[in-house]
């Protein structure tokens, strides 16, 4: 078996989230894969636009909704630009799922806070829908989400849907200068809004964080000041990867390979790693 060989998937639907972010709904071309494919929230995969290359994204859809796989990405480099250029009916390659998962069992009965910035919401969205689909197992759900501008917010329709849910609190924010006259959310950086406007109670709560390294750093600090302990913070990292299999050697943080040991890390695990992410 060639471990680098992707499965072929057809793009069922394309959603233009922002000017440079798209969501793909993907379905396996192979029937057997369609029936047997399983993954868990937090895992990632390698998506390829043939002729352009492979990119790594977390699976954005929930394992509770297996009719299709979703990925959400921003067009930034050669590979993602290649994917961005594809349309409904086109073929993409898919390798995965890889990496570890969010330990949902440990979250049972607890309140959850999802904290994400920009294009970092999709990795958490998988967990959000997973949790919402089994809402009876969990406590209150809060979603703190920010982006540079109103235009850069992804999953706008779903955010509205979440806002309507009784058990969910949504805190939206955009960076200063990114607001529009119609904007009803907060203005400010995510860690700041989290600490000063939302100020969650740390009791029996788990915070799930995803964002650029600098945001993770400041969010950890903010949560620390709010009284959160290290074992209440969990994050998912996105280091550059090529193989996703622990062979190409670029996603390591010290001896830890994000592709094999991650991408999901507890804050206490991160604290033991060198600052190389």
């Amino acid at each position: 078996m060639n471990i680098y060989q992707p499965h072929l998937m057809t793009i069922n639907k394309v959603i233009q989230e922002t000017p440079d972010i798209k969501t793909f709904h993907l379905v396996f071309q192979d029937e057997e894969m369609r029936d047997n494919f399983r993954f868990k929230a937090g895992q990632f995969a390698e998506y390829s636009a043939f002729g352009h290359g492979e990119s790594t994204f977390c699976i954005a859809s929930s394992p509770t909704r297996m009719d299709h796989i979703e990925c959400c990405f921003r067009s930034v480099g050669k590979n993602t630009a290649g994917l961005f250029g594809l349309s409904e009916g086109d073929t993409v390659g898919f390798r995965g799922p890889y990496g570890n998962v969010f330990p949902l069992d440990k979250f049972k009965g607890k309140d959850l806070i999802f904290i994400a910035g920009g294009i970092a919401l999709p990795p958490l969205r998988s967990v959000i829908w997973n949790v919402l689909d089994k809402a009876e197992d969990f406590g209150h759900i809060s979603i703190v989400y920010g982006a540079r501008t109103v235009e850069d917010l992804v999953y706008k329709r779903e955010i509205e849907e979440w806002e309507q849910m009784p058990n969910v609190t949504v805190v939206k924010t955009v960076d200063p200068g990114g607001e529009t006259p119609e904007w009803k959310g907060h203005v400010g950086f995510v860690p700041h809004i989290l600490e000063n406007e939302f100020a969650p109670n740390p009791d029996n709560t788990i915070a799930l964080i995803c964002g650029p390294p600098i945001m993770i750093k400041f969010t950890f600090e903010a949560l620390d000041r709010l009284g959160f302990k290290q074992d209440q913070l969990i994050t998912t990292l996105e280091n550059r990867m090529k193989c996703g299999l622990g062979k190409c050697g670029r996603c390591n943080i010290g001896s830890t390979y994000v592709c094999l040991d991650g991408p999901v890390f507890w804050a206490e695990e991160l604290a033991k790693l060198p600052k190389e992410y």
Binding site: F50, G51, E54, K242, C248, R250
Partner: peptide, 20 residues
């Protein structure tokens, strides 16, 4: 360590693994 890229010419292409 290695890198993986796609190279194409016309309608055919190869995914290549090479030293990085």
């Amino acid at each position: 360590c290695f890198d993986i890229v796609d190279e194409t010419r016309g309608s055919k292409g190869y995914r290549i693994k090479f030293w990085d």
